[in-house]
Design a protein around this nucleic acid. Sequence first.
DNA 1: AATGAATGAGCCTTCATTCAT
DNA 2: TATGAATGAAGGCTCATTCAT
Lengths: 236, 236, 236, 236
Amino acid sequence: MSKIPSSTKIPAKPTGSRRVAGGAAATPKTVAATTPANRAERAAERRAAIVEAALDEFIARGFTATRLDDVAKRAGVAKGTIYLHFKDKESMFEELIRTALVPMINRLHAPPPSGGSVRDMVEGFAENFIREVASTRRGDIVRLIVAEGPRFPAIADFYYREVVSRGLAGMRALIELGIARGEIRHKSLARFPQIMVAPALIAVIWQSLFARHAPLDATEMFRVHLDLIFGERRTT
Amino acid sequence: MSKIPSSTKIPAKPTGSRRVAGGAAATPKTVAATTPANRAERAAERRAAIVEAALDEFIARGFTATRLDDVAKRAGVAKGTIYLHFKDKESMFEELIRTALVPMINRLHAPPPSGGSVRDMVEGFAENFIREVASTRRGDIVRLIVAEGPRFPAIADFYYREVVSRGLAGMRALIELGIARGEIRHKSLARFPQIMVAPALIAVIWQSLFARHAPLDATEMFRVHLDLIFGERRTT
Amino acid sequence: MSKIPSSTKIPAKPTGSRRVAGGAAATPKTVAATTPANRAERAAERRAAIVEAALDEFIARGFTATRLDDVAKRAGVAKGTIYLHFKDKESMFEELIRTALVPMINRLHAPPPSGGSVRDMVEGFAENFIREVASTRRGDIVRLIVAEGPRFPAIADFYYREVVSRGLAGMRALIELGIARGEIRHKSLARFPQIMVAPALIAVIWQSLFARHAPLDATEMFRVHLDLIFGERRTT
Amino acid sequence: MSKIPSSTKIPAKPTGSRRVAGGAAATPKTVAATTPANRAERAAERRAAIVEAALDEFIARGFTATRLDDVAKRAGVAKGTIYLHFKDKESMFEELIRTALVPMINRLHAPPPSGGSVRDMVEGFAENFIREVASTRRGDIVRLIVAEGPRFPAIADFYYREVVSRGLAGMRALIELGIARGEIRHKSLARFPQIMVAPALIAVIWQSLFARHAPLDATEMFRVHLDLIFGERRTT
DNA sequence: AATGAATGAGCCTTCATTCAT
DNA sequence: TATGAATGAAGGCTCATTCAT
């Protein structure tokens, strides 16, 4: 049994603009004359590169095992530069997670595309979730929260407050709408909206841990799950 | 936002006989009046204490952040003693996880208590799972696997092979039985036995991360979930 | 009988500019007024200081007993700094030895100052050797190789290949020249050039181990040795 | 470049009586009924085994790198047993060296076999030395003293006092005899008896370090050396 | 006397953080 | 603003030594 050696080079998807072709050891010094105007722009770019890199590393190794040295290398900046943007490793981690959750939060704010049946809405949500979360890096972030939550209560709290509780509230509203409209018969489902999203979370975890052994068609699974709740549709 | 300081003393559930109450610096030399007569017995006890302590620390901090120093202190042994029982931190971690999973594996071997309806069987299984796993340290171990799996592929593999694939196979058999007996109408459920257990896993994660904010009645949630699959029962 | 306590402070010949006199706890941060203008220069200086210090410690204690902590202290750098220059203790040791041998190797390359008789050449070589090796730290390095060679075969190999075999080859050539010129009568000496240098090595070892008890005039000894080979000279 | 891994099993020449055939992990407990009479005998045997084992390990690894665990294993005793015979590692080392030197010391006491010419006597001594020292473990001990001398001044002192100074004194007497008898013409040789033995020491070191690369016929070398001093003999 | 489990000081090495340039 | 050399606290692991059996 061997763990992933910490020297493993997680293939770096170079983060955008910077990183001139050919530059071996990423020498970011020779950036040439900087137009005073785009200073801020350049800084923002750097910061973005750091965020990208840090997320990748944190996802791959977890908080403690991540080395800022690696983050810097991957971001193509010097180690010290990280400290121009973040107070320390811990704050960086927390800030990163928050930032990464923002899109999810926003989606929860957006009123669900209310056209059509409740099932369509839920299915739309689920497809979206699976496409945008379960099979992307955002899914890894969810797993990261599960992993580091106990050591970063603030992160867990934030996630609960901003994502989980809102998401469940929205889901409950949908369920109640479904019940009101007669689409859903099981009234008690409204007491446990978690049930509605459970397969989505399963999918997230499955992708990280077992996809290699047994690929999982998350969308289809979710559809079957919805059949349980709304009754079979395809028969029609 | 602050993470749990690494110096935080996770309250140690003292492991059995040794460890006199109040003893601060845990001086394990003066055992004197402690009963265990023979050598082997003492050794086994020590090893058990280390296992206990290590599991607690690993669960609380994750692999990398766990200090063997703390494990030793919590177990009431010297640091060197750990190395009489385990090759190194990594082997200790892997061995611990495997050991901790054995009870779960055994339960999967045991033929499901086949009396009664399929729903009863599943419900029995779920109640059991929630009682023995979701709300105990075994649940934390599942979360630990989710957390460290990507860095310990061997652990993830082992968990998949010994627990997940077997568990799902068993569940699929039950589902097929339910379909054959007419208890379950949704035939495609057999393709995704994950759906059946999804709420159980949700419960495990919820306990670790959010129980503090919003307690979750896992048993009741699971019952509602079963209602979706088997049809409501309580109406009777 | 007591060995040198490992805490013994081997008097450090301070390595160059840095290191203000008397400074106990060696706070190398406040360099301030120290001259070395540019980065590279400073780095080279530090590296040199480490090399100096490490050699002294290795010579005084041998490989295993040398503590990098002491090396760092003696070099006036932090422990971590060593690792900016060397991969680990072992590589440092091997690299150090090789580096320290380079001057000897170079001397072997240089064509012997061919003026005069063979005896003069050998005597010149010997005087040089005794002046530059036997009574200096280079002699200690030879002893160090003798001491650690069996545990570092690579070091022994390197020493044999680069110094011993070349040195003996050169010496053999000289001997043959001496035989050809009629300066040396014992033809079989060419089969054992080791004999020619034996007293030099004896001198090296004597200096390290017994000089304190009985000083040895290595130069004079070598001259007597040459008398055996070339016939007495002083009579003239 | 790689050093000998410390795990290297130096092939143990099992030390005599003990060590029952087939006994894997050398379980010295089952020694059966001990005749009260031979207690002391058994103890002496054990001690001898420890001495043997320790010498081998010290020679192979040097003082610091030698683990008492390995010594115990090789001697077929428990680690604690070593402490019944020696105060600590350091004393053991010093005592071992002293003990190992005794035979050499004794030989020096024994009046040189005074029959025949001085050359015969020296040649006899040298042949003896090369046979009994240079190519045996005793030679390794000489190298060990060279290696550890600086860190164990007491050892170096002892060696100087008991072996070196006596040996040289004896050699000087022989040289003076040779001069008196007209066998040796170079009178100043008496001032540096080291010259007489230098090739012998060279041979010792050569065996340890370079024998593998280039075997050395020490006896023949010594004979050539003597030819230098006494004049060629074979021509006759 | 002999054992070997247990101890804990100590050492190599890593890595978050600082700061002179 | 950005760099990266330097720092030193901390942690994994070893091993001489002790001591209950």
